[in-house]
Design a protein around this nucleic acid. Structure first.
Length: 563
DNA sequence: GCCGTTTTCGGCCCGACTGTTTTCAGTCG
């Protein structure tokens, strides 16, 4: 996704929200949102190609986008910004407060921000207003209070362990139980967790009594929502056994994917809901997702691809990619030991990797320029000797002595060529000077790619979800350099990094880049984070061929050191 | 606004929950 696409999509998204607030037609709102999402995810730069190539963009939106590309806004957006203060748009971020209520609050009471709303409630200015009873007002006041916290999404590592905890706590009472939603689609951040169960209604009482529950948000026979102590909301839904597949399909989403496949059902004269695929009263399919997709005449779509950005068309043409899977991985090319900032010894890490059945495994401790790690060339060479000895214990797993180099502000790395060439594999990463300008950062990455000994760019955006923003670089230029120089981009599986993100993976692949799915482990349990990296790769539609860490050893070695 | 094996007009996904509305509107996913 190019920068122009992101900005244009954000403007269109803002327009759709303002348009909804001003009572605009709901179908047009959806058209704008659909187009905004399609533009954001489009592989080509819309400032370089005709924006009409993007699916969902017709003449009217194309003209708006062209005007945006020229001057950074468009006439209709300016007009609505004039009418609706930004704070009113922020009002709709308050849970349970939608466009209808927001615009009423603004027009009738001059409330133009979440804080103005809580002041008005506290002052009693909204008492007795039609549609706003005492409970509603209390909920809104609390909603504003929690806005900051509620709007914060957690990374997939936090969400996955919470989901697994919830399922473990309820499994004894359920015939079937599983998580759905964006977690099942392996998004890198999760807003809330959907758990489905085939179970007696008493499971709701068990759920509400769990120690991880902070507050019960809603309670019914079919659905109970709680806010957990981590701040994440969990929805538990009890579904009929016979419609398990339909429920999993429906609640896995995404919304856009479901709209697309429902349209297919409607065209066949059928109806698809969370209870099944129906022709009138007759059930066509409901028990499994597989039979629903089959009945609709399409391939089964793996959850990570269900984003409504073209996968349905591919599935109808039997043209979905054969996605890379966890079982395809033959190794890990970015791991640490207690020689630098890892907490496990070389021997422990290697033994754990061997237990995973890897064909190769690289140890890549930090290099000297990250001074706090106190690495020296002597220490690195001593480690190499120990690795060569350890190799004899593991004849079926090739140990690679690597290093994680630091890409300096000018794109140079820690050691000169004569030292770099003695390593089996070199990962190079940005660990400092995060706030360079876009031009400097881009040149920095390009220089690193052009270093013939740099094999992999580690955690390219250097983001830490919720803590550190990604660095600013012209990724099109960086990826072109990576493709040209045969430098792989890392998909760092550590869940708070999830770096590269899947949108950038798609963009890099478009340029012909290969990827290394690595754990960046600093401890034995981290080795298993690879499932998150595989999730990112799947969301980007990668096949095993795209991922060098699925390749046989010989192919991998010739990629690293072409002679 | 978009779109087309219902094709240039007319449809665009659908059900659950909440609060207060005594029959439903708003919001969410």
């Amino acid at each position: 996704m190019a920068r122009a696409n992101e900005q244009a999509a954000a403007a269109l998204q803002e327009y759709s929200e303002l348009f909804a607030l001003t009572g605009g037609d709901a179908f047009r709102v959806r058209s704008y949102q659909k187009a905004a999402k399609a533009i954001a995810g489009f592989a080509e730069d819309i400032s370089q190609v005709d924006v009409r190539k993007v699916p969902g963009v017709g003449e009217a939106i194309a003209l708006k986008m062209e005007e945006f590309l020229q001057r950074g806004s468009f006439r209709q957006l300016d007009a609505l910004r004039e009418r609706v203060p930004d704070g009113v748009r922020r009002l709709t971020k308050v849970p349970t407060l939608g466009p209808k209520t927001a615009i009423m609050l603004f027009e009738d009471f001059g409330i133009d921000s979440p804080s103005a709303l809580s002041e008005a409630i506290a002052a009693g200015r909204l008492d007795g207003v039609k549609g706003l009873g005492a409970k509603t007002l209390a909920n809104l006041a609390k909603g504003v209070e929690q806005l900051e916290q509620a709007s914060r999404r957690v990374h997939i590592g936090v969400a996955m362990s919470l989901a697994e905890q919830v399922i473990a706590s309820l499994a004894g009472q359920a015939e079937r139980i599983a998580y759905a939603g964006s977690l099942r689609r392996m998004k890198d951040t999760i807003g809330d967790i959907d758990v489905l169960a085939v179970a007696p209604v008493e499971i709701m009482e068990t759920f509400k009594a769990q120690p991880y529950v902070e507050e019960i948000v809603a309670a019914g026979d079919k659905k109970t929502s709680v806010r957990t102590k981590t701040g994440v909301q969990v929805d538990l839904r009890v579904v009929p056994a016979e419609s398990w597949g339909a429920a999993m399909q429906y609640f896995t989403g995404s919304k856009e994917h479901n709209v697309a496949i429902r349209e297919i059902a409607v065209k066949k004269g059928w109806k698809l809901s969370e209870y099944g695929l129906f022709e009138g009263e007759r059930v066509i399919a409901a028990a499994s997702e597989e039979e629903i997709y089959a009945a609709l005449g399409m391939q089964y779509v793996p959850p990570p691809l269900r984003e409504g950005d073209g996968e349905v068309q591919l599935a109808l043409r039997n043209a979905l990619p054969r996605l890379v899977e966890l079982g395809d991985l033959r190794g890990d090319l970015h791991t640490h030991t207690d020689l630098t900032d890892g907490i496990a010894s070389l021997e422990e890490m290697v033994a754990a990797a061997h237990a995973l059945g890897y064909a190769y495994y690289a140890i890549t401790d930090h290099a000297p320029d990250l001074t706090m790690q106190r690495m020296t060339l002597d220490k690195a060479l001593e480690q190499r000797g120990r690795i060569r000895e350890l190799q004899e214990k593991y004849p079926d797993m090739r140990l690679l002595h690597g290093t994680e180099l630091n890409i300096g502000p000018d794109g140079s790395v820690d050691w000169p060529a004569e030292i770099l060439r003695e390593f089996d594999v070199c990962v190079a990463s940005v660990h400092s000077h995060f706030s360079q300008t876009r031009e400097e950062m881009t040149a920095r990455f390009v220089a690193a790619c052009e270093n013939p000994y740099v094999d992999i760019i580690g955690h390219p955006t250097t983001r830490k979800i919720g803590k550190r923003a990604p660095v600013d670089a012209d990724w099109d230029t960086v990826f072109k350099a990576a493709a040209r120089t045969g430098t792989a981009m890392e998909i760092d599986s550590f869940p708070d990094r999830s770096d590269l993100p899947s949108e950038l993976v798609r963009m890099a692949r478009h340029h012909g880049v290969r990827f290394a799915i690595d754990s960046d482990s600093h401890a034995v349990p981290h080795l298993r984070n690879q499932r998150f990296g595989v999730g990112i790769a799947q969301r980007a539609g990668l096949t095993p061929d795209d991922v060098i860490t699925t390749w046989p050893l010989e192919d991998l070695l010739s990629f690293i050191r072409p002679e």
